[in-house]
């Protein structure tokens, strides 16, 4: 059955969305989720990008997450960082690299906590940079731990 925007909004306008249930909307929801990410409601945009990553890990979903990673609202960028946990490692690494360098420490923190188990060389380079240069002590410490845990 086709999915329309009202179905998607009904799932995401809940105070506590049931993401497991919402996943059942399937790939047909992706265009609507992408529209919500581009919309002016940051709460819905954050929920939409997270749900997108749970529904699909293909190019369309990766683009939605990548778009959300440059959203002006940091709450949406936080959701994009968390969403990368559901993407293939190569795609996640590219997005995490950008978000780990976010000027908002909260966004960068979630990005670092979303580093894939086998980060790319480029992402490891970013982690090494943050280890020595982040203005946030917690991020320097986090980067140190991740580099140690993920190994070369």
């Amino acid at each position: 059955m086709p999915v329309d925007m009202s179905d998607v909004r009904a799932a995401l306008e809940r105070d506590e969305p049931d993401y497991t249930q919402a996943q059942q909307l399937g790939p047909g929801a992706i265009p609507h989720l992408a529209a919500l990410v581009r919309g002016d409601d940051a709460m819905l945009a954050a929920k939409a990008v997270y749900l997108t990553s749970l529904i699909d890990a293909g190019q369309d979903a990766i683009k939605v997450v990548a778009d959300a990673a440059s959203h002006p609202d940091p709450a949406v960028r936080v959701a994009a960082a968390a969403a990368t946990r559901h993407l293939p490692a190569h795609a996640a690494s590219d997005i995490v690299i950008a978000l780990a360098a976010d000027s908002d420490g909260g966004v960068a923190r979630v990005a670092l906590k979303s580093v894939p188990a086998k980060p790319s060389d480029e992402l490891r380079g970013q982690l090494a940079y943050l280890q020595g240069n982040s203005e946030f002590p917690e991020l320097r410490e986090l980067a140190t731990h991740i580099l140690a845990d993920t190994g070369p």
């Binding site: 809940r14 105070d15 969305p17 993401y19 954050a46 940091p74 709450a75 936080v78 959701a79 968390a82």
Partner: peptide, 11 residues
């Protein structure tokens, strides 16, 4: 500011 996963609130 936000929760992971995104919610309006969580009890």
């Amino acid at each position: 500011r936000s929760t992971v996963p995104p919610t309006n609130g969580c009890a």
